[in-house]
Simulated assay, not measured.
Amino acid sequence: MADSLDGSAYAALLPYALAGLGAAYGVDIDPYLNSRGRQVTRDLRDNRCTAQAVGAYPFLMGLSCPGPGPGGCS
């Protein structure tokens, strides 16, 4: 599902889903996001409703990285 959202008009909904899953299961999602992903996720979580998010961040791409650790996000 993430692949179909990445780069779409509704890509801003993906950070909401990731933040919700992280909160529900006690997982820190920050190591799985690049710096832009962390910035967008914080902004969406703290400042915007879903309609504002879609308007502010349409066609987002590449907010994640391969994963934490070597070759992952810094």
Rank of each mutant, 00 (worst) to 15 (best):
S64N: 13
G26W: 01
G22T: 10
N47H: 13
A12M: 07
R42D: 14
P70F: 10
A17Y: 10
D46I: 01
C73T: 05
G37R: 01
Y10M: 08
I29A: 08
T41H: 04
D3V: 04
Y57W: 04
L63K: 02
L14V: 14
D43G: 02
S64A: 14
Q52W: 06
C49K: 10
N47Y: 06
C49E: 11
M1T: 11
A53Q: 00
S35K: 05
I29C: 04
R45D: 14
G62Y: 10
Q39K: 11
Y10V: 07
G72V: 06
L21P: 02
A24D: 06
A12S: 15
A24S: 09
V40I: 15
G69Y: 09
L63W: 02
N47C: 05
S8T: 06
P70Q: 13
N47M: 01
A2Y: 11
G37K: 01
T41E: 07
Y32R: 09
T41D: 06
A53I: 00
L14P: 01
L5G: 05
D3H: 05
P66R: 14
P66Q: 14
R48E: 11
S35I: 00
P68E: 08
A19Q: 14
A9Q: 13
R45Y: 11
S8N: 04
V40P: 03
D3A: 13
S8D: 09
A9T: 10
I29V: 15
L60F: 02
G20A: 14
S74P: 15
T50H: 07
D46P: 00
R42I: 03
D46A: 01
R45E: 11
A51W: 04
S4I: 13
A51Y: 06
A51N: 10
G55N: 14
L21T: 08
S74D: 14
L13T: 14
T41C: 03
P68Q: 07
D6M: 03
L13P: 03
V40C: 05
G55R: 13
R38N: 05
A24G: 12
A9D: 11
R45A: 15
P58G: 08
R45H: 13
D30Y: 03
G22H: 10
Q52Y: 05
G67N: 01
R36W: 03
A11M: 03
P58D: 06
P58W: 07
P58F: 10
G26D: 06
M1N: 08
Q39S: 11
C65H: 01
S8M: 02
D3G: 05
G26S: 05
A51K: 08
A17K: 08
L33F: 00
A11K: 04
V27W: 00
A53M: 00
D3R: 10
L44V: 12
A51L: 11
